[in-house]
Computed example of a mutant assay.
Amino acid sequence: MTAVVLASGSPSRRKILAGSGITAHVLVPEVDEAAVAAAHPRASVVELAALLAEAKGRAVIDRILGGADEIPGADDTAVLFASDSILELTGRPVGKPHTAEATRRVWEEMGGRSAALHTGHYVARLDRTGTGGRWELAAAVSEPATAVIHTARPTPEELDAYIATTEPFEVAGALTIDGYGGAFVTGIEGDHHTVIGLSLPVLRRLVTDLGVFWPSLWDIRR
C-alpha cells in the first residue's frame, strides 16, 4: 500500500476516497483563503480554486516536513491530496456562504439557472529518506476540474426549509448534491465527484504522473 493523506476536513471528500477503497489520514490545513485571493486579484475563478488547493496542500506538507505532523504506518511513499471548490456564477466566485442570509442570496440568483463548479486538485508525492526516516517532498502536480450544474428553482417554502438544515452554509456555492440539496440539482455536465469535492479520474491521472500505481492506494485489508 501507499499511504494517503487528505489535506481537508471535508467529510464529503473523505467519503469519496473511502468509497473508492482508499483510507486517508486526515490533516486539516490552516489557510487564510481571503489572503490567498487578495494576493492574486487577477486570478480567474478556476485559477483561484487551483491556487487555494495548492496553498492547503503546501500548508500540510510544511507541517509534515517540519515534524509537526506524522503520517502513520510503515510505508516509504505517501501521496497527499488537497483541493478547493468554488462555484462560478455570472463570472464571479461564490464560496461558502456561512450564513442564512448569504445562502438565500445565492439561491435567489442561482435557482433555475446553470453554474460552473470548479475544483482545484493538488497532489504531492512524499518519500521517506534513508536518514532518520524523515519525509521529503519528491514532486507535486495540480489540475483543476469543472462541472456545470443545472438547478431547479426552490419554492420560497423549500428554500426556507433548506436553509433551516444549515447544510449549505459551509459548502461551496451553498450547494450539495449528496445531501438535502440534491433534490434541487436537475443535471450535471462533467464528473459528479467534482461537485462533491474531488474528481477521482483527475486524482488517478495525477497520481500516475507522479509514478505511483493507483491501486496501491486501495486499502485491501478492509
Rank of each mutant, 00 (worst) to 15 (best):
M1E: 11
T2S: 14
T2V: 15
A7P: 09
A7R: 12
S8W: 05
S8C: 07
S8V: 06
G9M: 03
G9W: 03
S10D: 01
S10Y: 04
I16A: 00
I16V: 13
A18N: 15
G19P: 07
G19M: 04
T23C: 13
H25S: 14
H25G: 06
H25A: 13
H25R: 08
P29S: 13
D32G: 07
A34I: 08
V36I: 15
V36C: 10
V36W: 07
A38I: 01
A39R: 15
H40M: 03
A43D: 13
S44W: 02
V46M: 07
A50T: 15
A50F: 00
L52K: 05
L52P: 00
A53F: 07
E54F: 00
A55I: 10
K56S: 09
G57T: 09
R58G: 03
R58P: 02
A59W: 03
A59I: 03
V60H: 01
R63P: 05
L65C: 03
L65N: 06
G66H: 11
G66C: 12
A68P: 01
D69L: 14
E70R: 15
G73N: 08
G73M: 10
D76F: 01
D76R: 15
D76K: 12
V79L: 03
L80C: 10
L80W: 01
F81V: 14
S85V: 08
I86W: 01
E88T: 07
L89Y: 13
L89Q: 09
G91Y: 04
R92L: 07
P93V: 11
V94Y: 01
G95F: 05
K96M: 08
K96P: 05
P97T: 11
P97F: 06
A100Y: 05
A102L: 12
T103E: 10
V106Y: 11
G111L: 01
R113F: 02
A115P: 01
A116N: 11
A116S: 12
L117F: 15
T119L: 12
H121N: 14
Y122P: 07
V123S: 09
R125N: 00
R128T: 07
T129L: 12
T131H: 13
G132N: 11
G133N: 09
W135T: 09
L137P: 01
A139G: 02
V141H: 09
S142P: 03
S142K: 14
E143F: 00
E143P: 05
P144F: 02
T146E: 10
T151P: 05
T155S: 15
E157T: 14
E157I: 06
L159D: 05
Y162R: 09
T166Y: 03
T166I: 04
P168D: 10
F169G: 09
E170L: 11
V171P: 05
A172R: 07
G173N: 01
G173H: 02
A174K: 11
L175A: 00
D178K: 09
G179F: 08
G179Q: 00
V185E: 04
T186M: 02
G187Q: 08
I188P: 13
H193M: 08
H193L: 11
I196H: 08
G197Y: 04
G197M: 04
G197Q: 01
G197H: 06
P201E: 00
R204C: 00
W214D: 02
P215D: 09
S216W: 07
D219I: 07
I220T: 15
R221V: 14
R221H: 15
R222P: 06
